[in-house]
Amino acid sequence: MLPLDLYDTASRDVRLDEGALVLGGMARSIDRALLDALTVVERDAPFRHLLTPGGGLMSVAMTNCGAVGWVSDRSGYRYDPVDPESGKRWPAMPAVFTDLAARAANAAGFREFAPDVCLINRYEPGARLSLHQDRDEHDLGHPIVSVSLGLPAIFLWGGQQRVDRPRRVPLTHGDVVVWGGPARMTFHGVRALAEGHHPLTGSIRYNLTFRRALPRG
């Protein structure tokens, strides 16, 4: 078997771990619809570089759509129904977003996934995301669905401890990663984005991350 680093996820699905799957190119056929919907979200909730609790600025720019949004400042990480910059509620999640997230989760074995938030990250060359766990959600029984658009990136897939050495997983335009169940708390991140050009996004990589943040009720 070839090392994971050499897999071309653009043309095949790759099992990362039990409960974790790369769906190669799943979103490519609707890429323009996704980017058009993203433009509408950005108009109402522009991208911004969030402040970390330690006082630094994240290299990745971020915005949100859905019932709540993920925010960070000196008081910590949290979900908030209101955009702290505008004082307004976050834009509604576009139907093309929710449909893709549900289909991807179902394809990975997670039935009836209904995300209530989409974190949207914008990477420019040099931007990166350090190894972390997604642990601010109310119910960790729901999976994470992550969609790559634009420039390719190296996704870092670690273990259950931060010190576990991560594997390098190449992701290209339209790839979707789903993880949940026993893989839900895996540490993951993104290596610094390399220079490049994509015909739809230019020198940018977008990442749509779908989650279920709030309890049902």
Rank of each mutant, 00 (worst) to 15 (best):
F47C: 01
K88E: 07
A107Q: 13
Q160S: 14
I144K: 05
L50R: 10
R167D: 04
G55Y: 03
L23T: 00
D175L: 05
H173E: 01
P199D: 08
P215H: 04
I30G: 05
R184S: 03
P170A: 06
T209G: 08
S72Q: 13
H49C: 03
F110E: 14
A61Y: 06
F187I: 02
R165S: 15
W90M: 05
V68N: 06
K88C: 11
A192H: 10
G25H: 00
A92H: 12
N207R: 12
P3F: 09
Y79F: 01
V82I: 15
M185C: 07
T52Y: 00
V117Q: 03
S86R: 07
R103V: 04
V14C: 11
V22I: 08
A107R: 14
A67W: 06
R135K: 14
L214E: 15
G217T: 02
H138L: 09
R167C: 12
A20R: 09
A192D: 14
T52G: 01
P170D: 09
A127S: 15
V22A: 10
R78V: 10
A67M: 01
A192M: 04
H49E: 10
A105D: 09
D175S: 04
R78T: 11
L50V: 00
A104Q: 10
A107E: 12
R89D: 13
F155S: 10
A92Y: 01
A37G: 02
G159K: 05
A105C: 07
D80A: 03
D136M: 00
H188E: 13
Y77C: 06
S11E: 14
G19L: 11
G109E: 06
V71L: 04
W157V: 03
D164N: 13
G141D: 13
A104R: 12
G126M: 00
P215V: 12
E195Q: 10
V178S: 04
F47M: 03
Y77Q: 00
V82C: 02
S72R: 05
G202P: 02
L129P: 06
R43K: 14
G126S: 05
R78L: 06
T209R: 00
T52D: 02
Y123N: 14
H142Q: 12
E137S: 12
M93Y: 01
F113V: 05
R122D: 03
R48M: 01
L156D: 08
S72P: 09
D83Y: 13
T172P: 08
D44M: 04
T9Q: 00
P91V: 06
M58N: 02
L131G: 10
L119T: 04
F210T: 11
T52R: 08
S72A: 08
W90G: 12
A101K: 03
G126Y: 11
Q160F: 04
K88I: 08
L34F: 04
P166H: 05
R78Y: 02
V68M: 06
R28A: 14
Y7F: 03
R103G: 09
M93S: 09
R167L: 15
T201V: 07
E112K: 14
D139T: 11
G141M: 07
Q133N: 05
P94R: 09
R205A: 06
A102H: 12
F187P: 08
D134T: 08
L6C: 06
L51E: 15
D13K: 13
E195W: 07
R168M: 07
V177G: 05
L35D: 00
R74T: 13
G180N: 02
R167F: 01
P115H: 11
G150M: 12
R167H: 10
A101C: 07
P3R: 11
S146A: 02
G55T: 03
P199Q: 12
